[in-house]
Design a protein around this nucleic acid. Structure first.
Length: 863
RNA sequence: GCCCGAAUGGCGGAACUGGUAGACGCGCCGGACUCAAAAUCCGGUCACCUAAGACGUGGUGUGGGUUCGAUUCCCUCUUCGGGCACCA
């Protein structure tokens, strides 16, 4: 064994060993319990970023740990290879998205290998290849047959200059990112997947998913957004007459309605605008407003009267109808009943436009004032000023109102969902073609199964002027499969969330070119542990749950939930630096190009761009992203310190579940620790083999170290296996190594105890830093490769101790530490605590009023 | 705006089920080794009172509450992060 730690050679050798022995090639084996450990697959952007390293290291730690604990582990990897960045790169460099993407994959695959992840590359899949995406198309056709996929219109961002549809992120302050032209909204036909058909089941199942983080389940539940209420009808004589429908969860406030507000897209709005120029201008303005909910919700609430009136369903009173920019056509009925007295938005709206406010709920007799909104105005209470409903509490009032309306056929209890159907059409080239052919005579005709896949041409280069498929005759022109006439192929492609909604199933059988899935799915699925960023807590996970349910219903898989256990890692953040020139777009500068100094006197931070010495501004600490140019390249770490240091640092810097703010400091510390571990083994091994451990012949010091070694093993096992706090597992091994360094190495038994402690340290860290531990295990005298060893068992005898350390408090304040024999009874503990000198001092002669004893830990004396 | 999180020394963090706040690491300070530096090793490091020391006092973003006891539970506010349906 050599004295120096040389990561490059050690890592190459360990990786060569795993490669030669196919250590991570997973085989189905009914006799062994499987463990499917999956990390969210990456978008092949070109280089790995810190988020990937964090994600895949967590996954690899768990996979290696479970493997050593006897499970048949599958840990696959693939590529989420369709998407917008490839088109942007094509526009910038003139390289076709296919080539750019595949080149990126080759580079990132090499990076993943250099980090030593135990991945089964035999199952690699790439979503932009027809052998994968053909099954998107096949399943889409099944959804079409079942009515789960359907067509309706949807709104898109339209850049009038480039004549192209923009993604939300390409719209900056309401203007196109390339042209700067104000973006228009357009309604176009699109395909939707009826996820709402599964809303109830998606929600109900959440409560059984105990191995998912609580916060993720809460977010999903809120997203699905079940609300119970009443669907009301306001009858009217507008046009040919009819009923304006609105949904409310507060039917108890019905007698407080003073207006109704409808969305700009509502038919009544269109009717009223016919001969009202001002209103039709206002509606146009609403429609051209933001499409993003966050912007919609923060914009000023505005409205305009339509001049139309509907009748109150109970009182028959005339209620004015307004158009409001805060009413969403996509939620409920696209209309709301305005109860300004008990709804904050309605209150604000009524105040602004001088509409009457009529309090109808008494909340514990508190005085209502029309002056300013109070948060308790929207609380439940008892009906007042509500005629025959006076005195009723919330539930009774809602029931009574619903019953009365139901008689008149003007209302009914109803459940509404916030969740909307999933629009999957994208007016873009680099995605999976939607298998539809448009025929003049037959309409939208599904591509027959035997003509699948519809292959995307791979040599096109988008130029920003819309989907290049529209100009590609060979793709575009086809015969109608139904009537044989000339027809046009659908040029929209699928949302990339479709690709990622089932890839986890395909890993079980990625090589099957005859079917989407096969029997191997039943062995490997569901995923035992899924790991990915918290940013995917809602959309990706919900879409995958929906997709799996559909496949379950068609009998393709025997389970409804794809991910038995979910782990959401926190994001990796870094400071962002920028300059905003007088004209033009904000310029971002990478952390690596910026020097930050702190003025000693003023404590002011100064950030300077090294290239020109000029000052740059700090935009705070945010997620590392390409668009903010604040990423740190993990490759630099690997090149300088090796993969083990990169892995160790990422795992030690923060608990995996929380955000990690990047800092360069600390990397050195991780490197130093590995060197110390290496040195400790070197010093030990260079004295020759250790004698066998004689448990009976140990002195007190040796027993103490042995106890700590096994406590460490227990802690590491629990921290990785149950708590998933890899950072504390590392800290525990560091402590063990610190203690070992203080142990004298004189007698043969000293060396035996040291041998055992070093083995525990090396094995305990092996899931985290697998290369160096692979080498050290050999040096410690083992023939079997560490990855093939079974996880060590805690020796219960080693944990035994004759005394326990107790804490004694007086009135909840720490006053003494006492050591008491383990077998002492409660009375003895109590007596010992009361006898302690410092305890007596703080009791000041007063008798103990109460003595609280927490077994094995603490005595609190209350005086 | 709405939904979900987070806040602990100079910094990252620990304290797992309401029971010793600050483990472990970084940084810094002092020392050893060296002609010197790097590397490495040893010691110290929340603040305050004190000549010094102590199982003295204060202290876990803010303000309040529950409790014998609160970083942990409840309420309020502030700041930061994630999501908001076409970034992935």
């Amino acid at each position: 064994m050599q004295e120096r730690y040389e990561p490059a050679a050690i890592e190459a050798e360990a990786q060569h060993y795993w490669n030669q022995h196919h250590s991570f090639a997973a085989q189905e084996d009914d006799g062994r319990e499987k463990y499917y450990c999956l990390c969210m697959f990456p978008y092949p952007s070109g280089r790995l970023h810190m988020g990937h390293v964090r994600n895949y290291t967590i996954g690899d730690v768990l996979a290696r740990f479970m493997r050593m604990n006897g499970r048949n582990v599958l840990q696959p990897m693939g590529w989420d290879a369709f998407g917008l960045p490839a088109e942007n790169a094509a526009m910038a460099n003139g390289v076709p998205p296919a080539k750019w993407t595949l080149d990126n994959i080759a580079h990132m695959k090499a990076q993943l290998k250099s980090l030593g992840y135990g991945l089964d590359w035999n199952r690699e899949l790439t979503t932009c290849l027809p052998q994968y995406y053909r099954w998107n198309q096949w399943l889409f056709l099944r959804m079409l047959e079942k009515g789960i996929a359907y067509q309706k219109t949807g709104v898109v961002n339209w850049d009038p200059v480039d004549k192209t549809v923009l993604a939300n992120e390409q719209v900056i302050d309401g203007c196109g990112w390339r042209t700067g032209a104000p973006v228009e909204k357009r309604e176009i036909p699109m395909y939707y997947l009826k996820i709402t058909a599964y809303a109830e089941d998606l929600l109900d199942s959440l409560k059984d998913m105990k191995d998912w983080p609580e916060r993720v389940r809460t977010m999903q539940a809120n997203w699905i957004g079940r609300s119970e209420g009443v669907r009301l009808g306001f009858p009217h004589d507008i046009g040919e007459g009819g009923v304006l429908h609105a949904f409310t969860t507060r039917a108890d406030t019905l007698m407080g309605v003073t207006f109704c507000a409808v969305a700009a897209e509502h038919p009544l709005a269109a009717y009223a605008a016919k001969d009202n120029a001002a209103l039709s201008a206002f509606i146009r303005e609403c429609k051209s407003g933001p499409a993003v909910e966050a912007e919609l919700a923060t914009q000023e609430k505005r409205g305009m009267p339509t001049g139309l009136h509907v009748r109150h369903p109970i009182s028959g009173e005339a209620i004015p109808v307004w158009v409001g920019n805060y009413v969403l056509m996509s939620y409920g009925e696209g209309a709301v009943m305005g109860v300004p007295a008990h709804d904050e938005r309605d209150f604000e709206f009524a105040k602004k436009y001088g509409l009457p406010i009529k309090p109808v709920i008494d909340v514990q007799g508190r005085p209502y004032s029309l002056e300013a909104w109070q948060s308790w105005y929207s609380e439940h209470g008892r009906c007042v000023n509500s005629g025959r409903y006076d005195g009723l509490e919330y539930e009774a009032a809602v029931a009574a109102v619903a019953a009365d309306l139901s008689v008149k056929d003007l209302g009914k209890k109803r459940v509404t969902w916030r969740l909307r159907d999933w629009g999957i059409s994208r007016q873009r080239y680099w995605g999976c073609p939607i298998p539809i052919i448009h025929c003049q005579g037959c309409g939208a005709v599904p591509v027959p199964d035997e003509q699948l896949p519809v292959v995307l041409p791979v040599d096109l280069v988008p130029d920003g002027s819309g989907n290049p498929l529209l100009k590609h005759a060979a793709f575009l022109n086809v015969k109608c499969p139904r009537c044989g006439a000339d027809a046009r192929r659908e040029t929209d492609t699928m949302d990339t969330f479709v690709d990622s909604s089932w890839y986890f199933l395909r890993f079980a059988c990625a090589d099957n070119d005859q079917a989407m899935l096969d029997h191997r799915v039943q062995y490997w699925l569901p995923v035992d542990q899924y790991i990915g960023g918290i940013e995917h807590a809602i959309l990706h996970l919900l879409y995958s749950r929906f997709w799996t349910r559909f496949m379950h219903d068609m009998g393709a898989v025997p389970f409804k939930e794809p991910f038995a256990r979910m782990f959401t890692q926190g994001m990796v953040l870094n400071e962002v630096f920028y300059r905003k020139p007088e004209s033009g777009r904000v310029q971002y500068f990478n952390t690596a190009e910026v020097t930050v100094t702190v003025d000693k006197d003023t404590q002011q931070r100064l950030a300077v761009l090294r290239a020109d010495g000029g000052e740059v501004e700090s935009g705070g600490i945010v997620t590392m992203s390409k668009s903010k140019n604040n990423g740190v390249d993990p490759q630099v770490l690997v090149d300088e310190f090796g993969a083990d240091t990169a892995r160790l640092f990422m795992m030690f810097a923060a608990p995996p579940e929380q955000t990690l703010a990047w800092s360069d400091e600390g990397v050195q510390g991780a490197y130093r620790f590995i060197k110390r571990l290496w040195k400790a083994v070197y010093d030990h091994v260079s004295q020759g083999p250790a004698a066998p451990l004689d448990k009976a012949a140990l002195n007190e010091t040796q027993r103490g170290l042995r106890r700590q070694a096994h406590q460490t093993l227990a802690k590491v096992t629990d921290d990785i296996g149950r708590r998933r706090t890899i950072n504390t597992a590392i800290a525990a091994v560091m402590e063990l190594l610190n203690a070992l360094a203080k142990l004298p190495q004189a007698s043969p038994q000293d060396r035996s105890v040291a041998q055992e402690a070093l083995e525990i340290a090396v094995q305990g860290l092996s899931p985290i830093i697998p290369h160096v531990t692979h080498a050290l295990w050999r040096h410690l005298g083992h023939r079997t490769a560490l990855i093939d060893e079974a996880w060590a068992k805690v020796d219960a005898d080693a944990l035994q101790s004759s005394t326990l350390q107790w804490v004694v408090q007086v009135n909840g304040r720490l006053r003494a530490h006492i050591a008491i024999a383990v077998d002492a009874d409660e009375a003895a503990v109590r007596a010992a605590a009361l006898a302690e000198a410092n305890v007596q001092k703080f009791m000041g002669g007063a008798p103990a009023r109460k003595v609280i004893i927490v077994p094995g830990k603490l005595v609190n004396i209350v005086v």
